[in-house]
Amino acid sequence: MQGVVKVNSALNMRSGPGSNYGVIGTLRNNDKVEIIKEVDGWYEIRFNGKVGYASKSYITIVN
């Protein structure tokens, strides 16, 4: 499943599904990501070869 990031500035990509996990990357508005699965309001995603987590509130699913 594919998604597009929708933010005003930047979205942190984290090592786990929560804001208490470390930041491993930064996503920008309109970045395209691969959604692997949903975990407690977060998406596990793949972006630029990295796998991490981002809040699903800021990612819109596209077909």
Rank of each mutant, 00 (worst) to 15 (best):
K32D: 08
F47G: 05
E44H: 07
V33K: 00
V33H: 01
G41L: 08
K56A: 10
K32F: 11
S9E: 13
G16E: 02
I45R: 00
E44T: 04
K37F: 08
M1H: 14
K56E: 05
G25F: 08
N20W: 13
G22D: 15
G3L: 03
E44A: 08
R46W: 15
K50Q: 15
Y43S: 02
G25R: 06
E38L: 07
G18Y: 02
I59P: 00
G16Q: 03
S9M: 10
I35R: 00
P17H: 02
N63D: 13
K50I: 15
G52Y: 03
G52H: 02
V62M: 11
V62G: 09
G18P: 00
R46N: 15
E34F: 06
I59D: 01
E44W: 08
I36F: 11
L11K: 13
P17V: 03
V39C: 04
N48M: 14
Y43N: 01
R28A: 12
T60M: 14
V33S: 00
D40P: 07
G41H: 07
I36K: 04
T60V: 12
Y58Q: 09
N63E: 14
V4N: 06
Y53V: 00
I24R: 03
V7A: 11
V33C: 04
G16A: 03
R14T: 09
M13P: 02
Q2N: 12
G49T: 10
F47K: 06
N30F: 09
I36H: 06
E44F: 10
Q2W: 15
P17M: 03
E34Y: 07
K37P: 00
I61K: 08
Y58K: 07
V62W: 08
V5A: 04
G52T: 02
I45T: 03
E38D: 11
V51Q: 09
R14K: 07
V5F: 00
Y53I: 00
Y58S: 13
V33I: 09
N48G: 09
S57I: 12
A10V: 13
S19Q: 10
M13C: 04
I24Y: 02
A54Q: 03
G3H: 03
G49W: 06
S15E: 11
N12M: 09
I35N: 00
N30R: 08
A10P: 15
S57N: 15
S55D: 15
Y21S: 04
V39R: 06
S15W: 06
S57T: 12
S55V: 13
I36V: 09
S57G: 08
V4Q: 08
G49A: 08
T60S: 15
K37I: 08
Y58N: 13
N12L: 12
I59E: 00
I45C: 04
K50V: 15
A10Y: 12
G49V: 06
D31I: 04
V7Y: 05
I59A: 02
V62D: 14
P17S: 03
N20T: 08
F47L: 08
V39T: 08
D31M: 06
I35K: 01
K56Q: 10
M1L: 11
S9F: 14
G16I: 01
G25N: 08
G3K: 02
D40H: 12
S15N: 12
R14H: 14
M1Y: 12
S19K: 10
K6P: 02
Y21T: 04
N12Y: 13
N29D: 14
V62L: 13
T60F: 14
K37Q: 14
R14V: 10
W42D: 02
E34I: 04
T60Y: 12
Y53G: 00
V5G: 05
L11W: 02
K37D: 09
T26K: 13
T60C: 06
G25H: 11
Y58A: 13
P17A: 05
N29L: 08
S55Y: 10
V7L: 06
M1C: 05
K37M: 07
N20Q: 12
W42F: 08
S19P: 14
V23G: 04
N48S: 10
E44N: 11
T60I: 13
R28H: 13
Y58D: 12
G16L: 02
N8V: 14
V39S: 07
N12G: 10
N30W: 08
P17K: 02
G3N: 02
G18A: 05
K6I: 12
W42A: 01
F47P: 01
E34D: 11
V39P: 00
E38C: 05
V5T: 04
D40N: 13
I61A: 09
G49P: 03
